[in-house]
């Protein structure tokens, strides 16, 4: 059962990737001019002084940390949904205690101004 569940997914993956390639092929067949046009990046018609690829000023860096904590928590929460009534009250208490602790972290990060950056 488990393998046959994934069989259509695999077929679909092959199919859709083939469709993407086919669309590119179609574009190659239809396009007016084959040779690519080489151009500078667009920012209104004039040229920049450097290559735009750069170390970006990521001002939401602290948020990524908080997000990671919650993302880990989601790993537990997905399987937890299947066993709530089987395990009983203790499952709910433990999960929401955990979430409560994480929310305290959110409150702290908020107080520190991590969610406002401009």
């Amino acid at each position: 059962m488990a393998t046959s569940d994934w069989q259509p997914v695999l077929v679909l993956l092959v199919l859709i990737v083939a469709a993407v390639v086919l669309l590119h092929a179609l574009s190659v067949a239809l396009r007016a001019v084959r040779e690519p046009v080489h151009t500078g990046p667009f920012s209104g018609g004039l040229e920049p002084q450097e290559h735009p690829l750069s170390r970006f000023h990521v001002r939401w860096y602290p948020v990524t940390m908080v997000f990671l904590a919650f993302d880990m928590e989601m790993l537990f929460m997905y399987p937890w949904t299947k066993v709530v009534s089987a395990v009983g009250t203790s499952a709910v208490v433990e999960m929401f205690l955990f979430l409560g602790i994480l929310l305290a972290g959110v409150a702290y990060a908020w107080r520190e101004g991590a969610f406002r950056w401009s």
Partner: peptide, 16 residues
């Protein structure tokens, strides 16, 4: 913000 980061000099416009 008191950091040292990559700077880009980009002309914006005139056609946007």
């Amino acid at each position: 913000d008191g950091l040292r980061l990559d700077v880009l000099h980009v002309p914006l416009g005139p056609v946007l």
